[in-house]
Design a binder for these strands. Structure first.
Lengths: 330, 330
DNA sequence: TTGTATGCGTTATCAA
DNA sequence: TTGATAACGCATACAA
């Protein structure tokens, strides 16, 4: 591979001039610049980013660590991040922690070692530790879930309130024995949505709460839902806290010949393209996933640019989209 | 941040000994090694991968360039790649080309500049050019679609045959006026599946083919399907060439009150969690996406390891899963 | 087994 | 405006 010295030799100038020309930093004599460009083109010169990064002590790469690549909610965030990063000349490295603290910590380590310019992360659990990055001054923005014990930048959704509204909606439809299918303790969104569910029950004067926790996957939710449906006093409606789990819940319905809306009401978090295609259409709490990504990326870029004010916490709104799965049809 | 010299100073040894200890290359006196490790721990030393990469002229990073992050087919590939890469100590950078040749080429450039160890790519179009990587000796493996005019390593699916079988299945169910909703010309999978559809018609002695091309997204497929359904001689069955487009097709059905299986038969490529939840369940051609990822990653790692034999072309099998959407129900 | 010294390819500083 | 040169942090060839 051609190096900067090869280009310099061919253009009959110093490496410094080549560097200046190609980076457009300082002014260079137009004639020389043309020679440099010609030489670079002829040699098929591609600057070695490794060397540049080492010299500059920084990279034009953002790391995005998400907890589940197969969840459309997170891929939508990724799109948002990428779109903003692109325009600023940054590349995005997408890392899938898979709700696994070990993988997450390994990726945080890689991010540090590779000296990425900044990190956006949806923390997996209670013990996510980004202090190694903070110490080095690498900006970190948390999305979807806050970092434990950290007053850092965050882009979250008012998910407790949304869960409350969804539950209120089910109550308004006449459902009385509502259950919540949520995720593991310690996952903030799981806990918050459960709290929102409780808020609504409390406000309605209902004292018998009913919930199951499972891993954040369809298989777990299928089992949890099955348990609920097969219990002595099965719920007449369900609040499911993400769209992957909604699939599990609907599978459990299907296995029992239960029809959403008619037999058991259901509202799930996150919209997805398929939710209007199931029968009946699924009521959802839709979160501004793409916006979470763009807001987080802009915030991160601002931090990289040097804006080191106090930590920001942005809270976006979720919106209930009531469809037939939560409408009582006699 | 602590550097290797800091560790060396603290441990009272040379940087060479620190390097040797931490990389476990050459033998080091156990006592010294212990001192080095202690010093590294005390200083919170994290080796600078930038410097290491520059020195070694290689990185432990694979680039995976896929054409649509929001398509479950590609995220499944990503999981496969990641799982294999992990075990070999490599990180995976996931890049979303978004079916956009410009973004794709930008990512190829980044991959080259960052000197990644290898690249796995699902090429966007006819003009994808990886020669810059090849020239440098960076191994490249194509997945899902072959690289144009390149005898390189590939992991593909026998998709033409699968499309043929799916069409034969529709014929066997009694459908006679079958249409194909496919992607842009030049996208190999789109072309191959259309050919497979034609193979089946030809074998059955049917001469009137019917197809529409659209972009590989649900909106495009919705429009294409709508056109077909609203035409003078609407098809009695559809073959849709990916799962994102299937959503568009089903939306078009829904808007017209058409019930799959009863009114119009439909088979779509790619299985997804929701396909069994729609009513009626969607017949699919399921592709071994995860396996594509693992096979491609293993192949790439072998190439990185130095195995520079002739290019390999692996072709995996797809399988028809017939459900109610393609069963004629009188 | 350990240390010294060099270079990986850039960019930035300083003089000219 | 340009060029010579010194880092950046690490790994290794070579010498001890």
């Amino acid at each position: 591979m051609a190096t900067i010295s090869d280009v310099a030799a061919r253009a009959g100038v110093s490496t410094a001039t080549v560097s200046r020309t190609l980076n457009g930093k300082s002014t260079v004599d137009p004639a020389l610049a043309a020679k440099v460009r010609a030489a670079a083109a002829e040699l098929g010169y591609h600057p070695n980013a490794l060397a540049r990064n080492l010299r500059r002590q920084e990279t034009a790469v953002l790391a995005l660590i998400i907890s589940d690549v197969e969840n459309p909610f997170f891929t939508a965030i990724a799109r948002g991040v990428e779109d903003i990063a692109q325009t600023a000349g940054y590349s995005v490295v997408l890392c899938n922690s898979d709700e696994n603290e070990e993988k997450e910590s390994r990726y945080l380590d890689v991010a540090l070692q590779e000296r990425v310019a900044g990190v956006i992360i949806s923390p997996t659990g209670r013990s996510t530790d980004v202090s190694i990055l903070r110490e080095r001054g690498t900006p970190v923005v948390a999305v979807d879930r806050p970092l434990p014990a950290e007053p850092g930048d965050q882009v979250l959704v008012d998910t407790r309130r949304a869960a409350c509204e969804a539950t209120e909606h089910l109550l308004a439809e006449g459902y009385r024995h509502i259950a919540c299918v949520t995720g593991p303790e310690g996952v903030r969104t799981a806990d918050d949505r459960l709290e929102g569910y409780r808020d609504a029950l409390r406000a309605a004067g209902i004292t018998t709460e009913l919930f199951r926790r499972s891993e954040l996957r369809s298989a777990g939710a299928r089992e949890a839902t099955s348990e609920l449906l097969d219990s002595a006093e099965p719920p007449d409606a369900l609040l499911v806290i993400n769209n992957t789990m909604a699939i599990g819940a609907l599978e459990a319905f299907k296995a029992r010949g239960i029809r959403a809306g008619r037999d058991v009401g259901i509202v799930a978090f996150d919209d997805a393209p398929w939710t209007t295609l199931v029968d009946p259409p699924l009521s959802v709490v839709t979160q501004p996933a793409y916006d979470i990504g763009t807001v987080a990326a802009k915030l991160l870029l601002a931090r990289i640019g040097g804006g080191s004010d106090k930590p920001t916490a942005t809270v976006l709104e979720a919106r209930l989209v009531a469809r037939a799965s939560s409408r009582r049809t006699p």
